[in-house]
Design a protein around this nucleic acid. Structure first.
Length: 423
RNA sequence: GGAGAGUUGGCAGAGUGGUCGAUUGCGGCAGUCUUGAAAACUGUUGAACCGAAGGGUUCCGGGGGUUCGAAUCCCUCACUCUCCGCCA
């Protein structure tokens, strides 16, 4: 969430910036400022009461020790009214804090200056396109037919065991999956990211830290019995490793990677988009996460984008990079690049990665800070990106690389798969 | 799942109703000494919020209560450890 300090001092730029998301937050911001000013005055009163009570308590103690019972009891009598006032102010302060927080949760991150205004995905800018469409002599099969033809993934069986959106990978399909995960992790390792295997379920505080809660809880699977959530992305456990952390100096650059399955309820998505591997309730992903000094986050974002470009190039996929417009940029993000691969048989672009910088938005919730050279504390910047999400990569690989003899496996994967062709 | 013990500052570890944001040790930082370093000695060393400032408030796992006053007493929740049971 945004810093209240920033709203106090920089209201106009927040309102202006958020217009790029096609929303006008003026009423919310004004409401916050009004409540904030009442909060401060109530807080002041409360602290005065506390200070006075502290003073009396101290006095009473001294009087008792001097054996002045009478005077001590007199002093005690003074506290009744003060205590009443104190609890009234306390109530007020708490109430206002709750209301302010409710409002703060409604404010998304302010888009970076490079982000263009826009309403939805139609306004996104294509910043780069690499490769070209595969051409086929005959008719190209969509991946859900290929997976059936070569017995790579069984969607029906997944329905039987669990439900729609939980495919079962088999044989070379499973091996390909494992190969991609190993490849992505090795590449991340080479790029300096430390590998983690985090928990796949997280507590409420973690969901809150990265911004999934309180608003988007409907998107996560929830384990009622233990009050835990299945992770929608490795971003949640990885970033939360650094919740409530105060880094001792300015000299840090934390680079983490991890493979995890991701669980998403995807309530309300139906139809053509969910066919085959296009949208699943459980899928595999390798994530990269960075925690950076504010001065470094722009460079870090570039590095992450380049990393993902490298992966797609090595896989020989036709892809493009979009810089999301304000309206399509995620709630917590200041700037997001989406990577899409072209799926030749479906003839459409499939999102396979989303690389974002959050600036202090997550760090503020996480209480992730560092000590500056002059011994002040300041919020870190967080970034993350998929590198990469598997299902649509698999879809594109199968569709784009189909030949009459079978599916060609990209060379970089050979050492992981142990086969060069699926036939 | 059953029984018991615990949760205090970066770490270790005192503190069982008042002057305790908290003894002490280690670590960190600064200084003295030294060509330099080590050792020794001296000093210093948590965070959040409000305030222009002086200053004030809050924080001893979380929440609530008793009291003029709580790290200390009570209730409750979470977590950790030990033993037993179960188990990959």
């Amino acid at each position: 969430m945004l810093e209240i300090q920033r709203i106090r001092t920089d209201k106009e730029s927040i309102i202006e910036g958020l217009k790029k998301r096609n929303i006008d937050v003026t009423p919310i911001v004004d409401n916050i400022l009004e409540k904030d000013s009442r909060w401060r005055s109530a807080k002041g009163e409360l602290e005065n009461c506390s200070a006075e009570l502290n003073r009396i308590a101290k006095q009473v103690g001294e009087l008792f020790q001097q054996g002045k019972q009478e005077e001590a009891n007199q002093a005690k009598a003074q506290t009744a009214v003060l205590k009443e006032n104190e609890s009234a102010y306390k109530e007020q302060v708490k109430q206002l804090e709750d209301e302010i927080n409710q409002l703060m949760y409604q404010l998304p991150n302010v888009p970076n200056e490079q982000v263009k205004a826009g309403k939805n995905e139609l306004d996104n800018e294509t910043v780069e396109e690499v490769g070209s469409k595969t051409t086929f002599s005959g008719k190209a099969l969509p991946h859900w037919e290929i997976t059936q033809k070569y017995d790579l993934i069984d969607f029906e069986l997944g329905v039987k065991v669990t439900g729609a959106g939980f495919p079962i990978y088999k044989g070379k399909g499973a091996k390909l999956q494992r190969a991609l995960i190993a490849f992505f992790l090795d590449e991340a390792h080479k790029a300096g990211y430390e590998e983690f295997i985090p928990p796949l379920v997280v507590n409420e505080a973690s969901g809150f830290g990265t911004g999934q809660l309180p608003d988007k809880e409907g998107q996560m699977y929830y384990v009622n019995e233990d009050d835990l959530y299945l992770i929608p992305t490795a971003e949640v456990p990885l970033t939360n490793i650094y919740r409530d952390v105060l880094l001792p100096n300015e000299d840090f650059s934390i680079k983490m990677t991890g493979y995890t399955p991701c669980f998403r309820r995807e309530a309300g998505s139906y139809g053509k988009d969910v066919r085959g591997l296009n949208r699943l309730h459980q899928f595999d992903k390798v994530e990269i996460v960075r925690i950076e000094h504010p001065d470094n986050s722009a460079r870090a974002l570039d590095e992450m984008v380049n990393h993902v470009k490298g992966l797609l190039a090595k896989l020989g996929l036709h892809y493009r990079i979009l810089r999301l417009c304000g309206g399509d940029t995620g709630f917590a993000s200041a700037m997001t690049y989406d990577f899409e691969v072209f799926s030749a048989a479906q003839e459409k672009w499939l999102e396979v990665s989303s690389v974002s910088r959050f600036d202090t938005f997550q760090a503020n919730r996480l209480k992730l800070r560092f000590k500056t050279a002059d011994k002040k504390t300041a919020l870190c910047h967080t970034l993350n990106g998929s590198a990469l999400a598997l299902p649509r990569i698999v879809a594109a690989l199968l569709e784009n690389n189909q030949t009459e003899d079978g599916i060609k496996i990209p060379e970089v994967l050979h050492k992981y798969t142990g086969f060069e062709m699926i036939s």
